[in-house]
């Protein structure tokens, strides 16, 4: 790869880097704005005077959110559910994706169709609720973990990655007498680290962002997941804000508990930063050449 870089390529590199700089700014700036709001005074946020730097800097908002019992409880819930759920889901998904990725498995097509069918059809909210209720899992962490512990979509992605792996390595291992489990654990998984990282990220983000689980299966606030807390906080303040203008709401019930915009911004920041930190951490598995290197080594 030590060839001389042509003029054309240098132009391409520069333009490419600049285009991504521009694109990156469009996605980064709104986040910086949200961050600045969370450190700004309420008046400045309300009047829309906050740009990329806090106006009327204060830390009270974070102090408030971090001492809010429901936020802390929900935060812990979501971390717990995300960790356990992702681990369980990865095991299940690998166990299904591997057999279905082998072209020689009899009945493979039918089996895949069996999985694809449930990706597209479902029985709806009532029977699923009754199932969870019947298993006595309402108001438990299980209700948040189990129903989404396997995603057909992710399984198909992983299966596709497995299919792309060079078969030669597997064949030679098989000739050495290795069984399916050995091949999966010692060869397939180490060779598919980028894929495993991707699917793991999808599951983790899925669990972290899961909000319907709380809506359907939780009434005890102790188990409320973070996204439901966040959603309800935002809905509540929007509803009150809306009501103040249209007059169509019961002031007595809400007693003016509209959540200030700065608190909303801080809550959004605090709830999205942990999961966003996962990706840079996973990026070391996305290095090109890792696949072959791991096998050779």
């Amino acid at each position: 790869m030590k060839q001389k870089i042509s003029y054309q390529e240098r132009v391409f590199q520069t333009v490419n880097a600049l285009v991504f700089l521009a694109l990156g700014l469009t996605t980064l700036l709104p986040f910086v704005n949200l961050l600045a709001k969370s450190f700004s005074s309420e008046s400045a946020v309300l009047a829309g005077r906050v740009g990329l730097w806090p106006e009327g800097f204060q830390l009270g908002t974070y102090q408030y959110v971090l001492t809010e019992p429901q936020f802390r409880q929900s935060f812990v819930n979501s971390i717990l559910v995300t960790l356990c759920g992702t681990a369980l889901a990865m095991v299940l998904t690998c166990m299904v994706a591997y057999p279905l990725s082998r072209g020689w498995l009899r009945g493979r097509r039918l089996l895949i169709l069996l999985f694809v069918f449930v990706m597209l059809f479902n029985g709806g909210m009532v029977p699923t609720y009754l199932l969870i209720n019947g298993m006595h899992m309402l108001n438990t962490y299980w209700a948040l973990i189990l129903p989404s512990a396997f995603s057909v979509y992710n399984m198909i992605l992983l299966k596709n990655f497995f299919e792309e792996l060079p078969e030669s390595v597997e064949e030679s291992a098989r000739l050495d007498g290795a069984g399916n489990m050995t091949i999966l654990l010692k060869i397939i998984l180490p060779m598919s680290l980028p894929a495993i990282a991707t699917i793991g990220l999808f599951y983790a983000v899925g669990y972290w962002n899961n909000y319907m689980g709380g809506v359907l299966y939780i009434t005890d606030p102790q188990y409320k997941p973070l996204q439901q807390y966040l959603y309800e906080l935002v809905t509540e303040s929007q509803r009150i804000q809306e009501g103040m203008i249209t007059g169509d709401y019961n002031m007595d019930r809400d007693s003016m508990n509209a959540t200030p915009d700065a608190i909303r911004a801080a809550t959004i920041m605090l709830s999205s930063v942990p999961i966003m930190l996962v990706y840079p951490f996973l990026q070391k598995y996305f290095v090109k050449g890792l696949v072959i290197g791991s096998v050779k080594g």
Partner: peptide, 24 residues
């Protein structure tokens, strides 16, 4: 407009009148 847009227009002084709740 959503509630927050009206809030903002009143708080910045861009608008002069709106239906107002005393609590805002």
């Amino acid at each position: 407009n959503k509630g927050e847009n009206v809030d903002q227009k009143m708080s910045t002084g861009d608008a002069v009148m709106t239906n107002m709740s005393w609590s805002s």
